[in-house]
Amino acid sequence: MFGRRQAGPVSTGEALRLEGVRKIYGAEGNRVAALDGVSLSLPSGTFTAVMGPSGSGKSTLLQCAAGLDRPTEGRVFVDGAELVAEGGEAALTRFRRQRIGFVFQRFNLLPTLTVTQNVTLPLKLAGRKVDRAKAREVLTRVGLGDRLNHLPSELSGGQQQRVAIARALVTEPKVVFGDEPTGALDTRSAREVLGLLQESVRLYGRTVVMVTHDPVAASYADSVLFLADGRLVGHLISPTAEAVAERMTHLADEVEHQRVAAGV
C-alpha cells in the first residue's frame, strides 16, 4: 500500500498554474518580497514537493496558490479557473471548497467530533450532500475503517493525520496542498502518510503540492521545486533523498554568497 512508486491512471491537463506571482509585505520603505515573480505549471496527477531555506517563500507560495492569501501581483489558476479577488472572502472560500484540499502539520481536527464527522465536515460546510458511505470508503482506504466513531484524542498522531488526509480527499479536490504534513510525526507514521499522498496521486488522479524541509519526504514526490529569496531557483525530477539533500546544501551556500555580495 505504501510503495515508493505505483502504477496508475495517467492524467492530462494542468492542475495548477502561477503567472508572475509576487507577494509583498510591509509598508513603503520597509517592503519585503516574499515571492518575487514566481511562474510555474503543474500537470494533473502529479506529486510536487517545494523546498528551500527558511524565509525562502515556501509557505507564502502555498498560501497564494491555495487561495489562503492574495498575491500582490500575478495570477493563479486551479484546474483552469482563475483565483480572483472579485467577490471577497466568500467567493474565495467557495473556490477553495470546490477545487482544493488541505493537509496541515497539526492535523486541525475538531476534538469533539468523531472521525467520520471530521471527514464529512467539509461537505457540510460546502452545502453538499453528506455521503457517509463514501466517507467510510475513504477512511477504509487510509486504514481507519475500524475507527469511524473514535474521537481524535483516541488516535495516535499518525492516525489523526490519516483522518486529515481522508478529510482532504472526500470532496475530490483537484489539488491537495500539504504544509509540512509529516512534520509532527515519527518516522514510521510519516512514511505511511507519504505513501497515502502518493497513492492519492497514482491511483486516484489527485494532484499534490507539499511544502517540506525533509529530503526523505521530498523523495516521495515526482519532482521538487527549490525556492530561494522568493524565486524559483531549481527543479529536480525523480528525486532521491540524497540528491535533494545535496541540492539543498549547495542552495544554502548559493543564497549566502548572494546575500554577502549584495551586502545583506
Rank of each mutant, 00 (worst) to 15 (best):
R106V: 05
G88W: 11
M210T: 01
G55E: 03
G127Q: 05
A34G: 05
S39P: 04
A49S: 15
P239H: 06
R188F: 10
G13D: 03
E172F: 01
G37L: 08
V255K: 13
M1R: 13
K124E: 15
R70M: 11
H257N: 13
G52H: 00
L40W: 10
A27E: 15
I100N: 05
P9G: 10
R206M: 09
E242P: 00
G57M: 06
E192C: 01
A245K: 10
T114H: 05
G80L: 08
L225N: 01
R259F: 02
S39N: 10
M51G: 01
P9V: 09
E89G: 12
L62S: 06
E192V: 15
A261F: 03
H213N: 08
M1C: 08
L109C: 11
R94A: 15
T120F: 00
P9E: 12
H150Y: 13
F226L: 04
E254Q: 14
V32S: 12
D179H: 07
H235N: 10
I165D: 02
V21I: 10
G143H: 07
H150K: 10
L251T: 03
V255E: 13
E19Q: 14
F102D: 06
L227W: 00
E82V: 05
T60P: 12
A90K: 09
R162L: 08
F47D: 11
A126N: 06
P173M: 04
V138N: 04
A90H: 03
L121Y: 07
V32M: 11
V233M: 03
I24W: 13
Q6F: 02
V38D: 07
E14V: 15
G57I: 00
L194P: 12
G127N: 08
V260F: 01
Q258V: 01
E246S: 12
A34E: 08
V78E: 02
N149G: 08
S39T: 15
L148G: 04
R5W: 06
M51E: 03
L203F: 00
G195A: 05
V21F: 09
F102T: 07
A261Y: 04
V244G: 06
V78C: 06
A228I: 01
T116V: 14
S39D: 12
P53S: 14
T60E: 02
G263R: 13
R94E: 13
E172C: 00
L40V: 09
G52C: 02
D69M: 13
T93C: 13
T240G: 15
